[in-house]
Design a protein around this nucleic acid. Structure first.
Lengths: 191, 191
DNA sequence: ATTAAAAATTACCATATGGTAATAAATCTA
DNA sequence: TAGATTTATTACCATATGGTAATTTTTAAT
């Protein structure tokens, strides 16, 4: 929890009232490997801040194949923003990849923070700006890089995740099959 | 310009002082087809709001191939947010696809609006939230849909753009070559 | 330590998409 | 309207990635 508070203080001045409010609407939660926090098809009203471990969000297509939208490691937020924004059932599943610790927020209560403590608008705008930039980069990478290049970039961006995340999850993030990733890794090893 | 003012009023209460400030930091600009507003490699300090016509942002990879990140039609913003956010030269080119009218903002002056008129934080947060959701969808579509499915979705999302935008731009947005798009269209026509 | 389960690799062939090039169609311009 | 230019299509073959399935390796459980 201290890590989140610190993160907030990096953007804005956090009053003790606001800090108290944050504590009042959140709770720390230990989740074990494989546990599902948001399930595709169900209504979503939670957002999670990761303090330990790693999680991912993914959708399952009509053929049953999984596609990973996001990996979340320490200090990242994860939820199904599409569902929350559109007030519709989750199109994503959020699952813990390792034993993890998250801070769970009720989304509606979290949304009220902007009314009660308007300084959080700035905090959130900064978060969203950063997020938009990383999504733009992801899209450009997907458009112009080969599977090998995308994999190398992934290893740079998530230097420690490889030990914890099975390759087929990485493949589903990169937009290739696990077999293709395996081939890519074999080629890479040769070089 | 009225369309932007109206858009702002949909989110927040716009004081006359704020409205005046907006006028003072912006200028309407007519741009003709093919004109380049931001050039890859140069420093960026402008953001554009489209009131008429359509534009696109794209990068050119090492082999000279273009990859379209975004199409912007009436009521959309376009710039190179990666460059602005990271204070680095443009990685994108922003080009007018048709004769268009845009409102040009100096980005630094626009950024000051949050200090002068904090209500704009809410306005921008809403914009960014909507944008994040559409980017999440785009990534999921890219991961799970075939070229044909992505093309059909594109036609739904940009129902009128097809008449104005050459197919090779659409192809570069979908992540395929123009020849592949042509094949996809031929198959589609058969059905 | 042994067994079972999960994950990763490899091989084979299938398929979608890419690249080059030629042609056709559409659009622009004088 | 004629000619030039741009855009789109098509054909051919090449290549990257997908799908199925068998095998090996790693991890987890008893």
């Amino acid at each position: 929890m201290q890590t989140l508070i610190q993160k907030i203080r990096n953007s804005i001045i956090l009053t003790s009232e606001a800090e108290e409010y944050i504590y009042s609407i959140s709770k720390e939660k230990k989740v074990s490997k494989g546990e599902i926090l948001i399930r595709q098809g169900q209504m979503v009203n939670k957002t999670f801040f990761v303090t330990q471990g790693s999680l991912r969000s993914f959708c399952v297509d009509k053929e049953g194949k999984e596609h990973t939208l996001q990996f979340a490691v320490t200090d990242w937020w994860i939820s199904d923003f599409i569902a929350i924004y559109n007030h519709e059932p989750a199109s994503l599943t959020v699952q813990s990849i390792t034993d993890s610790v998250v801070i769970e927020f009720n989304f509606q209560k979290l949304a009220q923070i902007y009314l009660k403590f308007p300084e959080f608008e700035l905090f959130q705008r900064k978060n969203l700006e950063r997020h938009v930039v990383s999504l733009h980069k992801r899209i450009l990478n997907q458009l112009q890089l080969s599977a090998l290049e995308r994999y190398n970039l992934f290893l740079e961006q998530y230097p420690n995740i490889e030990q914890h995340v099975p390759n087929y999850h990485i493949a589903s993030y990169l937009g290739i099959t696990q077999q293709s990733l395996s081939r890519v890794r074999a080629e890479k090893a040769k070089m």
